[in-house]
Nucleic acid binder design. Structure first.
Length: 487
RNA sequence: GGUCUCGUGGCCGAGUGGCUAGGCAAUGGUCUGCAAAACCAUGUACAGCGGUUCGAAUCCGCUCGAGACCUCCA
């Protein structure tokens, strides 16, 4: 593919990417609910869309990337007594909800930076857009697609479905949805179990509360994305992304809200990233099989044999296509780790390649294949496959088996920079004073000194100790062997 | 139960009608004091059965298995 094609969930097909107002591109991605630490599954989605963002920018589109922070309105469940996740956590820990929000927003940003994802251009919060959310609710009520009851406002899905296709995105049919609903909870004040909350009345327990025309309450979860995406990207924008698990009902509700309020579907291309699985099952907090980024970096987790560098984890994720599930395992991570370092080692070789007058390398062809891979719905695993073809070429040049000239080397370097550093967002890792390497080295030196001492080779033993002293490393001989520390 | 997706060689994972994906692991070789690295070579992989076709991992049907969504989830 010579131009970018992306898979649109709405049509179920790969479509040529044609922005509404080129060269501008509006990109909205559903961000996290900040009531606990992000786990690896969450991170995968944001890394997937980081690639989308990066490649669009590489193609010189003027991207406005909006990713929200859900800091209110996300309910524990759909029942009437459903409690806001953040509100609940705050109550349980006797904290102000905004402390929870701050703690986990910082954690989220920290992890996104560690994974080398680019920051969104705008990162709006639900609590910062209460006024806009109230306005759109009033609008939807005025259009007749929402009703108030006991201080809460619900979207009338049945009425909406009479004129619009509710389920267009997720491929669901309204009749099947109605018959398929399980709970026949008589407590439910909604007209139909499919209806979803636009505004919820706050119970006395609920500490996050705002004034509204319907009394004290808080906004429904689905609403914020409709409001904030259109506020910052316009009533029609190009790409809306999110995890596959948000397709229904979250994104379906977003579409319904937008159509009810503005009479049109806001989004041109819907993109959905697939799940990270563990032993075949979706990694999620509720299943208790989630792994936190820090646990993976340090290896401090019962299911992990060792720690992995964030760039290795990123590389691992990019070796699968964003629309496929990816199964997490120690073995798979270890394979990626070796591959990643093979790639990085080859890249470092470029600067010291022998230069010839002639070239046997068709760098333009590599470039073409790289572009073709990414143009095909951001196919990063194919790109990585092609990168390893180039790795082989680089190593062969280094070994003197293949000849190439300076011009080709320059182009190669630029190409690697574009695709590895800019598009895939991978960066070399080895230079930042790796503690485990230091420990390994010191263990080695201490062991060699021990051997010298056992054979009463005091000259060698003392020379090692003195030279380490000069490096500000103190060796201390104790009863149980030597220890060391940095002065 | 309903809707949908997936099942690729030891592992991970691309690929949607004919052309070696790739990484890791494995085996043989070149190189090397020995290793490592690198390079070269090596895999009757497409859940099963049946069908369509000159030709199927790829399309269709059935069977088996796994998963996702239908309730909060990236």
């Amino acid at each position: 593919m010579d131009t970018l094609h992306i898979y649109n969930t709405l049509s179920g097909k790969k479509e040529p990417f044609e922005p509404i107002n080129p060269p501008f591109v509006g990109l909205y991605v559903c961000g996290p609910t900040v009531y606990s630490s992000v786990h690896l599954g969450n991170c995968r989605t944001f890394i997937s869309f980081d690639i989308v963002n990066r490649y669009l920018r590489y193609l010189d589109y003027k991207v406005r990337y909006v990713r929200n922070i859900t800091d209110a309105g996300h309910l524990e469940n759909d029942a009437d007594e459903g409690e806001d996740k953040i509100s609940k956590k705050a109550r349980l820990e006797s904290l102000d909800p905004m402390q929870i929000v701050q703690t986990y927003s910082l954690d989220f940003h920290d992890k996104m930076a560690i994974f080398n994802t680019l920051s969104p251009d705008i990162e709006p919060t639900a609590t910062g857009h209460i006024v806009e959310q109230i306005e759109i609710i009033q609008n939807i009520i005025a259009k007749g697609y929402a009703y108030e009851i006991n201080g809460s406002v619900y979207f009338d899905v049945i009425k909406y479905a009479e004129v619009e296709n509710y389920g267009a995105l997720s491929g669901r049919k309204i009749d099947e949805l109605i018959s398929g609903t399980r709970d026949l909870d008589s407590q439910d004040e909604k007209r139909n179990s499919l209806d979803f909350a636009l505004w919820k009345k706050a119970s006395p327990l609920h500490i996050m509360r705002w004034k509204s025309p319907w009394g004290i309450g808080f906004p429904g979860w689905h609403l914020e994305c409709s409001v904030m995406s259109t506020k910052y990207l316009g009533e029609s924008f190009d790409i809306h992304g999110g995890g596959m698990d948000l397709k229904f009902p979250h994104h379906e509700c977003e579409i319904a809200q937008n159509k009810a309020a503005h009479g049109k579907h806001a989004v041109k291309y819907w993109l959905h990233g697939n799940m990270l699985t563990f032993e075949g099952k979706k990694m999620s907090k509720s299943l208790g099989n989630s792994i936190l980024p820090d646990e993976l970096f340090t290896g401090e987790h019962p299911l992990l044999t060792k720690g992995f560098h964030p760039m290795v984890v990123r590389f691992f994720m990019l070796q699968a296509h964003y629309r496929s599930t990816l199964d997490f395992s120690n073995e798979a991570l270890e394979a990626s780790e070796k591959g990643f370092f093979r790639l990085m080692t080859a890249i470092k070789l470029i600067d010291s390649l022998p230069v010839s007058d002639i070239t046997e390398v068709d760098i333009e062809n590599h470039s073409k294949l790289f572009h073709r891979a990414m143009n095909d719905d951001f196919n990063s695993p194919i790109l990585i496959g092609h990168l390893f073809d180039l790795v082989k070429v680089i190593n062969s040049i280094s070994d003197g088996r293949v000849k190439t000239n300076q011009e080709t080397i320059d182009k190669m370097k630029a190409l690697i920079n574009d695709f590895v550093i800019d598009v895939l967002g991978l960066k070399p890792v080895d230079e930042d004073g790796n503690q485990s390497v230091l420990n390994g080295l010191m263990n080695l030196i201490v062991e060699m000194r021990k051997r010298a001492r056992l054979s009463k080779d005091w000259d060698t033993s003392d020379a090692i100790r003195d030279q380490l002293n000069e490096l500000k490393i103190i060796v201390k001989d104790g009863k149980d062997g030597a220890t060391w520390e940095i002065k």
